[in-house]
Design a protein around this nucleic acid. Structure first.
Length: 429
RNA sequence: GGAGCAGUACUCAAGAGGCCGAAGAGGCGCCCCUGCUAAGGGUGUAGACUGGGAAACUGGUGCGAGAGUUCGAAUCUCUCCUGCUCCGCCA
């Protein structure tokens, strides 16, 4: 959500930005919202005048009453009643205009950073940098679900019976590996100076509405029956929601938090749920990082944040690359975003394991998250990034640490979290 | 889940239908006094969101949220949320 002043003062910039995102159908919204804004302000001024008059006369009535001039006071009531009627007749219009403006403003995309490559859709995203050699061993890497099953580490069949498609039981060393990776990710971020946080896994509808549109909510969020509660799709929801409507002391910035949570997603439509694997599931777990900072520090943080994820995966011997979202693929709230993708030696391509975004002040404007500065209050910048989402991270790990004999090598950094285990061996009966 | 109490600006806090955008204090600015240490006194200032205006300034909204009563609500009524205390239940 951009500042409406930008439309008042620099409409062309807003339109140019929309063109860069190939959302030509939204160009007319800019003119429309400009018109609505003028109508709204005109009406507001008129209504405010009436309100002012009402307040003044009501006050006079008060004085008259106190002085005991009852008659005079009573006669003034009529006048106020008339004004009140007038206000009432237009109040709905005022609210409606306000809502219309807000609805349109929600649709107008955030101004993207100059550095964002121009492109229509995800096919035009740009690889920025590779980290580590995308290695293809001279032996076959099995499908990740097969690797897990060979290690007696996965039971999707039972999960299907208890919970349906898109759920899973992780078992034994594979389950332990999953937890170990998350614990390691947590400590990794703590060592980077982030504060560890376990947020609520359910949030109220007003918080949900603050962080996503109704359509998005419907496609993603599980609702608890008979409660005003939703299961979070990512801890970003509860982490950013935490600051909704808050005025933060400037000296508390930057706020850098790393949160753990399970994540629940309906995954309606889109790509659907995979039959066999763990790539797209209804339930996963994630170590996340979020930052709230001064606007001028946002780009520094952005670069730091994605590089932490790269460093994390590299420490587990997983080759990764960063892929920058082009203008057309960038969500409307975002200023700049990149995916961190892990190498799949089986498919011999990279696949998404995380996503780093700076939203500028758009999210803060929507949720009213401000800082109290010396020169006045301002909206903070918000950023978020995945440290590790797993089982997806687990897939990357298994494929890249798979050895010819079917065993899984555990890198040094992870061994303490695996009780010193150096390799997960195939247990053949 | 039940009972009682509460929610006022960055913080604490007064206010109990009109004179309340809301005393007072902390805070912040300036000045003074004092020297044995995070002290005292004076004085000024601000306070959230938003409309108009080049500005000076001037309107509106806003006292947990929403609705209502009233000419007029921080103040009265209803619903909800949150916190505290007690009871119940339970990892």
């Amino acid at each position: 959500m951009i500042d409406i002043n930008l439309i008042r003062n620099n409409k062309e910039l807003v339109k140019e930005n929309i063109k860069k995102k190939f959302q030509y159908e939204k160009l007319q919204l800019v003119d429309k919202v400009e018109e609505l804004d003028i109508s709204y302000r005109t009406l507001k001024t008129a209504l405010d005048d009436l309100r002012s008059k009402r307040n003044k006369i009501s006050n006079e009535i008060g004085i008259l009453m106190r002085e005991g001039k009852k008659e005079e006071g009573l006669s003034k009531r009529e006048e106020v009643n008339f004004i009140n009627q007038e206000i009432k007749n237009n109040e709905d219009k005022e609210i409606e205009l306000q809502n219309q403006i807000k609805d349109i403003m929600m649709l107008i995309p955030n101004i993207i950073d100059d550095s964002v490559p121009i492109g229509k859709d995800d096919s035009e995203n740009v690889e920025i940098e590779k980290f580590g050699e995308p290695f293809v061993p001279d032996y076959e890497i099995p499908y990740h679900a097969d690797i897990c099953e060979a290690l007696n580490g996965l039971d999707k069949e039972s999960a299907g019976r208890t919970s349906g498609n898109g759920f899973y039981y992780l078992m034994g060393d594979v389950a332990r590996l999953h937890s170990a990776m998350l614990s390691y990710a947590r400590d990794f971020m703590i060592n980077k100076g982030f504060t560890y946080c376990i947020p609520p896994f359910m949030i109220r509808s007003d918080v949900v509405n603050g962080v996503m549109s109704f359509a998005e909510m419907d496609a993603m969020m599980y609702k608890i029956e008979n409660e005003d509660l939703y299961l979070i799709g990512t801890s970003e929801h509860s982490m950013i929601g935490r600051f909704k409507g808050q005025l933060i002391k400037e000296e508390e910035l930057p706020i850098a938090l790393t949160s753990y949570s399970p994540c629940f997603r309906k995954e309606v439509g889109a790509h659907g749920i995979e039959e066999r694997g763990l790539y797209r599931v209804h339930q996963f777990e994630k170590q996340e990082m979020i930052v709230l900072c001064k606007p001028e520090e946002a780009m520094d943080w952005y670069n730091k944040m994605w590089s932490y994820t790269v460093e994390f995966f590299r420490s587990l011997d997983i080759p990764v690359r960063t892929l920058e979202c082009c203008s057309g693929d960038l969500a409307d709230l975002k200023v700049k975003s990149c995916d961190v993708e892990a190498w799949s030696p089986r498919q011999q391509k990279y696949f998404e394991v995380g996503s780093c975004s700076t939203l500028g002040d758009a999210q803060a404007r929507r949720l009213s998250i401000r800082a109290k500065g010396e020169k006045g209050n301002y909206l903070v910048s918000t950023l978020n990034n995945t440290v590790l989402a797993t089982p997806r991270g687990l897939i990357a790990f298994l494929e890249n640490n798979y050895q010819k004999d079917g065993s899984i090598k555990i890198p040094k950094v992870l061994q303490p979290y695996m009780g010193g285990l150096e390799v997960i061996k195939l247990n053949k009966d």
